[in-house]
Simulated assay, not measured.
Amino acid sequence: MPEHPEHSQNTSKPVRTFLDKLASFISSEPDSCTELLDILHDAHDRKLIDTECLSMIEGVFRLFDSAVRDIMIPRSQMYVIDITRPFSEWIDIVTKSGHSRYPVIEGDNETIIGTLHAKDLLHAGEEGFSIRNILRPAVFIPESKRLNVLLRDFRNTHNHLAIVVDEFGNISGLVTIEDVLEQIVGDIEDEFDDENDDKIVPVKAGSAGPRWRIPALTEMAEFNETLGTALEDNRVDTIGGFVANCLGRVPHKGDTFDIGDLHFEVLRADARQLHTLLVEKKTATPEKNPAKL
């Protein structure tokens, strides 16, 4: 007996669900990640995954597109221990900086002889203690190494710090496993991070003029009032947004650049957001009086 039209099933094309799209993507084996990211964004729009989850997944993809040079701590910002100096001198560096691992040199700044783990200093008072005996081998990697490969190596070798060298073998900086993980989960803060990171803090003047450590979320009005500037951009409210607009991208840790008479250095940033800037205001040098004829 023929089915009544009112009871017949709807023959219109069904809407593809998120799982349908994901299954289709996996089975078709596409050549790029673009389609997968589109599916994940669609899942986010449908509230199947939250914003934090989507951001972390995108961070994983960024590991494949980024190199060590993009996130390394530059040589000028490295805390280095010189074991030719008195013990009391460099132990002060360890206690004040709060890091767990340090590159170790022996007089020559370009020759790293190993790495020191701060926890190994617990044996410093024991008889026969020698700094040389507790040094770990230093790991050297090129600037061009991909972050996904570096993370795998960190996991396999149980190393958490590597020294970065350029194509000529010169030290460019260092990178830690925390720096890599921050590309996925965002900035990782601990008990040693500065408690004044939400305030503008004057620091020792540089060669060109006064300097400040400034949070990226500082309002433009507060920034201009403190530094005596008149920066303006109607599209943003914070100095971090202003800087990102000027560069056309999210700044990387270690980036340096000038905007007018201000010199900027990025102290803290991850793949998604700028966190802290060091800003130096160049002091105008008075012109010399022209020689009289």
Rank of each mutant, 00 (worst) to 15 (best):
N159K: 05
A284N: 02
E126G: 00
D108L: 06
V236G: 11
L40I: 10
L181T: 03
I81H: 03
T84C: 11
D166V: 04
S27A: 07
D198C: 06
S144I: 11
S32M: 04
E189H: 14
F154H: 04
A23R: 10
P215D: 01
A291Q: 10
T84G: 13
L161P: 06
G186F: 11
E3I: 14
V201E: 14
V149L: 13
L277Y: 12
P202H: 04
T285S: 08
L231Q: 07
G228R: 01
F264V: 01
K21Q: 14
C33I: 06
I171C: 08
R69H: 10
P215Q: 00
N196Q: 15
T276N: 04
L174T: 03
I71C: 05
F18G: 08
V175C: 07
A162T: 04
L161W: 12
P290K: 00
H160M: 02
P30C: 07
T157G: 05
K204S: 13
M1A: 03
Y79F: 13
D190F: 12
T283Y: 07
E232D: 15
V164D: 03
A43H: 03
L247E: 05
E6V: 12
E178P: 14
D92Q: 15
G206K: 05
R211N: 02
R46T: 02
G240H: 12
P74M: 01
L40W: 09
S88G: 04
H275C: 01
V175Q: 05
K288M: 11
D190N: 12
K21F: 02
R85H: 14
E126S: 12
